[in-house]
């Protein structure tokens, strides 16, 4: 459209400064504390309103955590990733394989899965430091595909295309048995989500988080200010991978099943959609987006079980054409205490 924005966008590949259009539309002011508390009250309260939908709530909590982990990378560091499912899947498989092989205590399994994902995130983070947006897209996508291929190939361990059956977990902390209705599962996932949000809040409010935002704004300038840009990106990518791994592990432990689907491209695309639905850059976007996405998915697939993907696609297209910001701001306006239109108009 307008020439200056095009030029700005194009120059982003030339110098390692990925500012321009992307950074402009990613930032958002943090939620006021009252709104945050309200979200958590709603999250806990939802269980008591619809206890028979606890399985769905559990799924939302897990996807919310997953989307929040992506937010750390996209919303705060400005890296567009199409392969975040790699970490979700890695976590899911590690947790699943541990449980199948007899190490069925949930919390250590969770931690191990998170660490394994973090390791993969750490290693692959060096790959995304260079190149343009396109290169990063390709590399994130490629890493997810490589993992998918590995999971498919080593089917002795992962169950391959059949999936990993027989993930039976011990009670959480030895006290809370997993039940069929997902009651324990929901509170388990919600607690992990809560802890992760707390950690993420601390991280983004720290000098480290501020440096990240500086990098997102203009990497070259941030480097000139003496910020170790590569170090920061590696750290946040690893942290994000850790949390995505936790989400994957929760998924494996609470659904007691792992299939290749956890590494699928769809998962990476869906999580991106969720995050964008909810809005990037204020931590809760992922959670809100996960709620909207899951509710939509449930409603639509009740109507047309086979073709719900079409409507998700349509949603994406409309979302982009209407403008991500306007959409998520309208959603955000529904929340108590959330101000509208604080950031400049994206158009």
């Amino acid at each position: 459209m307008s020439a200056p924005s095009r030029a700005a966008d194009q120059s982003s590949g030339a110098i390692p400064a990925d500012g321009g259009v992307l950074a402009h539309t990613l930032s958002r002011p943090p939620l006021p504390l009252a709104a945050e508390i309200a979200i958590w009250i709603v999250a806990v309260g939802a269980f008591f309103v619809v206890p028979d939908r606890a399985l769905l709530l559990n799924e939302i909590a897990i996807l919310g955590l997953f989307a929040m982990s992506l937010d750390l990378v996209l919303g705060y560091a400005g890296i567009v990733s199409l392969g975040h499912a790699a970490f979700f899947g890695a976590g899911a498989y590690v947790a699943g394989m541990l449980a199948v092989n007899g190490y069925a205590t949930p919390l250590p399994g969770l931690l191990a899965a998170g660490l394994a994902a973090a390791l993969i995130g750490f290693l692959s983070s060096f790959l995304i430091l260079r190149g343009s947006d396109l290169t990063r897209l390709m590399i994130t996508l490629g890493v997810a595909l490589i993992l998918l291929e590995i999971a498919n190939r080593f089917d002795d361990w992962t169950g391959g295309a059949d999936g990993l059956y027989g993930v039976a977990m011990d009670p959480v902390l030895g006290l809370f048995e997993f039940d069929l209705y997902g009651h324990t599962a929901y509170f388990y996932s919600l607690s992990v989500l809560f802890l992760c949000v707390l950690v993420a809040r601390l991280v983004i409010a720290s000098p480290f988080g501020l440096s990240l935002r500086a990098i997102r704004g203009n990497r070259l300038r941030a480097a000139h200010l003496g910020i170790g840009t590569s170090r920061h990106l590696v750290a946040v990518y690893t942290l994000s991978a850790f949390m995505a791994g936790l989400a994957g592990a929760l998924n494996a432990q609470t659904t007691q099943f792992v299939s290749l689907e956890v590494l699928d491209f769809h998962r990476s695309a869906d999580v991106l959609l969720m995050l964008v639905l909810g809005g990037t850059g204020y931590l809760y976007g992922g959670l809100i987006g996960a709620v909207v996405f899951k509710v939509l998915q449930t409603l639509i697939s009740d109507l047309t079980p086979q073709y719900w993907q079409f409507w998700i696609g349509l949603l994406l297209v409309v979302l982009v054409l209407v403008g991500r910001d306007r959409m998520s701001e309208r959603l955000g306006a529904l929340l108590p205490g959330r101000r509208r239109g604080v950031e400049g108009d994206p158009a």
Binding site: D9, V21, L22, L273
Partner: peptide, 9 residues
């Protein structure tokens, strides 16, 4: 003229 994220989505 939009960001790459928009184009990808």
């Amino acid at each position: 003229g939009r960001s790459h994220l928009d184009q990808v989505l």
